[in-house]
Amino acid sequence: MNDNRSLIIIKVSKWMAPFIFLYGLYVVLYGHLSPGGGFPGGVIIAASFILILLARGRRAALKKLPYGVAKELDAIGALMFLTVAMLGFIFSGLFFANFLQQYLPGETRRWFNAGTIVINNIAIGIKVCGAIFVILFFLSVLRISGEGGIDFRSIERK
């Protein structure tokens, strides 16, 4: 892409993105103990990739999180959520039953204590991260490629 990007922006985004990613991971994984959860955490994780997208261009962002992978993450998160729901149906007889908490309840206020809520949080986080990145990536590519729409074959080939 164009080479007139500021060195400060490139460097600062390089330093900030891992910490934003880590904070998003924390919000997802501790959603059942403190405010947060899958949706905001997933958006924060996606924000770390969007920072790279805005600061260092499309190619750098696609190197960190390829378009195909983000698309798969969206589907994997949804399938994981539904799988947990179906497992609740199989083990406890109810769709979305919290079967883990029923059979092996954890110690209160420890990390592994809320049964399927942790797994559901992670699933929603993965899903939202992929979806938000893909949506904003569409918007950014649309500007570059002009009126003709996006040629998805050329994106996946890169």
Binding site: G31, H32, L33, S34, P35, G36, G37, G38, F39, D74, G77, A78, F81, L82, A85, F95, F96, N98, Q101, P105, G106, T108, R109, N113, A114, G115, T116, I117, N120, N121, I124, K127, V128, A131
Partner: peptide, 29 residues
Amino acid sequence: DLTGSTNQVMSVLLDFRAYDTLGEATVIF
């Protein structure tokens, strides 16, 4: 007691009312 989650918002979102979250996930998809 029922979910073990300290954050009651999450216990409602992902346990008692998980169907709503499924709908939200469908919207994003």
